[in-house]
């Protein structure tokens, strides 16, 4: 576990959020980003399964429903490796704050819930770095399900774990699959000491707690640039207040 087991030595800070679909983690991260930017920090945002490299392939596999737990897991690891190299390490080396919507713990929870070997998945991500702060937004399945169903009409095939044949009914399958993921998350929280936030609380209450924890975690952080307008030596665009990407559907990042 050399990778994420040890703290990194980059001048920047890596803050990540975890939680099941509909836990509200993306909303919380977006609010955190707004606040950090308003404080004059230069912030980079990256999210699970978003690299150009594998996007089309993941889409294709999902469309054809040919993805197995193993290929699903490996594709996500490929996406992660690509983003780590291009979107996370350069800004961290440049001393900026990187916010990641989902991190390796998503794989530890979700791939294992799909049947991958826990030891294998952890080794797979051995090249990852340990975040400075990892939030876990804890929420019961029925709450997350309610949030998702109120936002859009249908649950997606893989999100519901339909590939596992848990149930022919998408809602029931979602429930069962997400419950399994929750169990795995509980293990991950214990193992990697994630900071647990009660995600059933009001949005602004949660955000207050998040900002408090972040403030403490940033106590030793020395920003190289203030007010976001740093000359970035390659490797992405600094996010200014106006350019904050809206979260694209809370549960879209499968």
């Amino acid at each position: 576990m050399k990778g994420y087991g040890q703290p990194h030595t980059y001048p920047g800070r890596l803050i990540i959020v975890e939680g099941i679909d509909g836990s509200g983690k993306s909303t919380q991260l977006q609010l955190l980003q707004r606040w950090l930017v308003s404080q004059g920090h230069t912030v980079f945002f990256t999210e699970w399964n978003s690299s150009k490299l594998v996007k089309e392939t993941t889409k294709l596999g999902k469309k054809n429903r040919t993805l197995t737990p193993l290929t699903f897991s490996l594709l996500h690891a490929t996406d992660f490796a690509d983003r780590l190299f291009y979107n996370m390490i350069p800004p961290l080396k440049a001393g900026m704050i990187v916010l990641a919507d989902r991190y390796v713990y998503t794989a530890f929870a979700r791939d294992v819930a799909r049947g991958c070997d826990p030891g294998w998945v952890r080794k797979l991500y051995d090249f990852a770095i340990r975040p400075d702060l990892a939030f876990y937004f804890k929420v019961p399945v029925d709450v997350s399900l309610g949030r998702i169903l109120s936002g859009r009409a249908k649950i997606k095939y893989y999100e519901a774990g339909m590939d596992l044949n848990l149930s022919a009914d998408p809602v029931e399958s979602f429930s069962k699959f997400q419950s399994r993921i929750l169990e795995e998350y509980d293990r991950v929280v214990e193992e990697f000491k994630l900071t647990v936030i009660d995600a059933t609380a009001e949005i602004d209450e949660q955000q207050e707690v998040v900002r408090e924890v972040v403030t403490r975690a940033l106590a030793t952080y020395q920003p190289r640039w203030k007010h976001g307008q740093a000359e970035v030596p390659g490797g992405g665009d600094p996010v200014s207040g106006a350019g904050i990407p809206e979260p694209q559907g809370q549960a879209d990042r499968h």
């Binding site: 040919t66 197995t68 290929t71 490996l74 190299f85």
Partner: peptide, 22 residues
């Protein structure tokens, strides 16, 4: 020219897994 060593290897692994299982 964007592939790094680890992503390269992971792409191979994914291709291999797909063929192994299917």
């Amino acid at each position: 020219n964007t592939l790094t060593r680890d992503t390269f290897s992971l792409l191979y692994a994914t291709d291999f897994a797909e063929r192994l299982e299917n």
